Amino acid sequence: MKRLLVVFLISVWSLNVIAARVDTLQVQSEAMNKLVKNVVILPDNYDGSNAFPVVYLLHGAGGNHADWVTKVPAVKSYADHYQVLIVCPDGGRTSWYFDSPVDPSMQYETYVSSELVSQIDQTYKTIASPKGRAITGLSMGGHGAFYLAFRHQDVWGAAGSMSGGVDIRPFPNNWDIAKRLGTYAENKANWEENTVTNLVYLLDGRRLKLVFDCGVDDFFYGVNQRLHQKLVERNIPHDYTERPGGHTWEYWTNSVKYHLLYFNDFFGNN
């Protein structure tokens, strides 16, 4: 009997894993004059009659819109479990989700925070307010999620970062950041104005709910520690976790579960 029960439970779980619907939505970006692909994961019971909250899930440098759904297939089951839409935009291989002041082809702040959000709310039945929107991401996407949410608190009500590059200044020669902002030596203001840790002044501690974490073996560990300390000094409430791990998909596969649980509580309280 116990063996039959285990088989039944595994079968039910397997059905739940594949129950979610996965769309690839192409959105025209007027800011960049191109079509951008986005993965949209819909919970199994989505039929357009009820409004659902939305979690925007950003990829890292070198990735694309399909990273999360292919490398962490369980995100499909999380859409079912938490009854949310999960949107994974293509943020360019190294856009850093800025509106680049030096490269007009890289205007991903406008794309994600305005063009994409607007199109998602038009295409799907969503809770179209900050109470029904959250955003998180890994590495470059962790920076992007905090960057966008800090600057657009009228769009998102909760934000997270997994192993995020939350201070780009220690990495002036990495991941094409200089191609997006200009070199640090010649464009210091661009770097200072567009690094997450310098945007804490935008937070009032009441509107935007924050969760972030980083592995202790990660090269972004130090900048995440410093952001945590800065938020503590400013009395900005947040959830911050350090756990074993490096800059790996194994770490993010585990981390995203905690972020979605945090967002589920946020949506429930609203």
Rank of each mutant, 00 (worst) to 15 (best):
256 V>E: 07
31 A>P: 13
147 Y>E: 11
53 P>K: 14
194 N>W: 04
173 N>V: 11
268 G>W: 03
137 G>A: 03
234 R>H: 09
104 P>M: 06
262 Y>I: 08
38 N>H: 11
190 N>L: 12
90 D>N: 13
252 W>R: 09
22 V>T: 15
84 V>D: 04
133 R>L: 07
228 H>R: 07
17 V>Y: 07
173 N>M: 05
104 P>L: 08
236 I>H: 09
62 G>A: 09
53 P>M: 13
124 Y>N: 03
72 V>Q: 13
220 F>R: 09
244 P>E: 05
56 Y>N: 04
99 D>W: 07
182 G>Q: 05
178 A>Y: 04
121 D>G: 09
177 I>K: 05
35 L>N: 14
121 D>F: 01
165 G>N: 06
52 F>T: 10
139 S>K: 11
261 L>R: 09
231 L>R: 13
237 P>W: 02
50 N>T: 12
184 Y>I: 14
3 R>H: 05
232 V>H: 07
217 D>T: 07
251 Y>H: 12
251 Y>F: 14
201 Y>H: 15
55 V>F: 10
90 D>Q: 11
227 L>I: 06
8 F>C: 15
183 T>E: 00
40 V>T: 02
260 L>G: 02
25 L>R: 07
84 V>G: 08
140 M>C: 05
6 V>Y: 14
196 V>R: 06
26 Q>R: 15
258 Y>G: 05
208 L>F: 15
81 H>C: 01
85 L>V: 03
95 S>T: 06
90 D>A: 11
36 V>G: 09
103 D>R: 13
173 N>C: 02
151 R>I: 07
58 L>T: 07
160 G>E: 09
140 M>K: 01
77 S>W: 00
38 N>P: 01
118 S>W: 00
231 L>M: 12
48 G>A: 00
219 F>L: 07
254 N>R: 07
7 V>Q: 11
103 D>W: 14
176 D>K: 12
233 E>M: 13
49 S>W: 02
93 R>S: 14
252 W>Q: 03
1 M>H: 11
27 V>Q: 12
11 S>E: 02
264 N>E: 05
31 A>S: 15
21 R>L: 06
168 I>F: 03
201 Y>K: 15
130 P>D: 11
130 P>Q: 08
51 A>N: 06
186 E>G: 08
158 A>P: 07
93 R>Y: 10
224 N>Q: 06
199 L>T: 08
101 P>N: 13
262 Y>W: 02
169 R>Y: 05
237 P>V: 06
8 F>S: 15
208 L>N: 12
202 L>F: 08
166 V>C: 02
245 G>Y: 01
130 P>M: 10
13 W>V: 15
238 H>A: 03
81 H>P: 07
116 L>V: 07
135 I>S: 10
233 E>F: 12
239 D>W: 05
200 V>D: 04
196 V>E: 10
59 H>K: 10
17 V>G: 03
